[in-house]
Amino acid sequence: MTNTTIEIILYGAEQLCPSCVNLPSSKETFEWLEAAISRKFPDQPFKMTYVDIYQPPEESEKEAFAKRVIEEDLFYPVVVIKDKIVGEGNPRLKTIFSELEKYGYKSM
């Protein structure tokens, strides 16, 4: 088990990605992902952050990445852990869980 808190950032938008018509919204994906990680890694700290790509916070890294999502036409929501894209469009739990395990998270 880890005591380190990893920040998981989900970049999304209110409107659906044009290529993601039948998928849940970015906010719904954020809530689903937060619940799934909490169940998989109970009592292990993590921080979920939602960033609206069209209204990013005034933090240079998050603002720059939000701009990148728009400019590179990435399929959002985009899930990022430690500057690494681990999910895009319809993120896969297996990929996200695997990345967290690299940082010492243990499934229960």
Rank of each mutant, 00 (worst) to 15 (best):
T5P: 00
E34M: 10
K67E: 14
E99P: 01
S26A: 15
E71H: 05
F65L: 07
F65H: 04
K27L: 14
P91D: 04
P45L: 09
K40S: 13
I6T: 05
T5Y: 02
I70V: 13
E34Q: 14
I85V: 15
F46R: 10
Q55Y: 14
R92P: 00
N90S: 14
E31Q: 14
T29Q: 13
P42D: 00
T95N: 03
Y50I: 08
I53G: 00
A35C: 10
Y103T: 00
K67C: 07
F97R: 00
Y76P: 02
G104V: 04
G89Y: 00
Q55N: 15
I6Q: 02
M48R: 11
K27Q: 15
V79P: 03
N22P: 05
P57C: 07
P24R: 11
E58A: 12
S98P: 00
F97Q: 01
E58N: 13
A13N: 10
G12S: 06
P42L: 06
M1W: 08
E71F: 04
G12Q: 08
N22Q: 14
R68W: 08
Q44A: 04
Q15N: 12
V79D: 07
L16F: 04
R68N: 09
K27V: 15
F30V: 09
I8N: 01
K62Y: 14
A13M: 10
E61Y: 06
P57N: 08
I81T: 11
G104K: 03
E63I: 04
L93A: 01
D52N: 15
Y103D: 02
E99D: 05
T5D: 06
E58S: 11
K27E: 15
L74D: 02
T95V: 12
G104Q: 06
R39C: 11
K94N: 01
E58T: 06
E28L: 13
M1N: 11
S19D: 09
D52L: 04
Y103S: 04
G89D: 01
T2R: 05
Y76S: 03
T95R: 04
K94D: 01
S60Y: 06
Y54T: 11
M108Q: 13
D73I: 07
D73H: 07
C17N: 09
F30T: 12
S19M: 12
S26G: 11
N3S: 13
S107M: 09
V80C: 08
E31S: 15
P24F: 12
E7L: 00
Y76K: 04
I96Y: 00
F65N: 05
M1S: 15
D73R: 09
E59N: 14
L16P: 00
S26T: 10
L100W: 02
I70H: 00
V79S: 08
P77I: 10
E14A: 12
I37G: 09
C20T: 04
S98D: 08
E14V: 13
S60A: 14
A13F: 07
G104I: 06
G89A: 02
L33E: 07
S107N: 08
E28A: 15
F30G: 07
M108W: 05
E7Y: 02
G12W: 06
T95P: 00
E88G: 02
N22V: 10
R68L: 12
I81P: 12
T5M: 12
Q44C: 06
V51R: 05
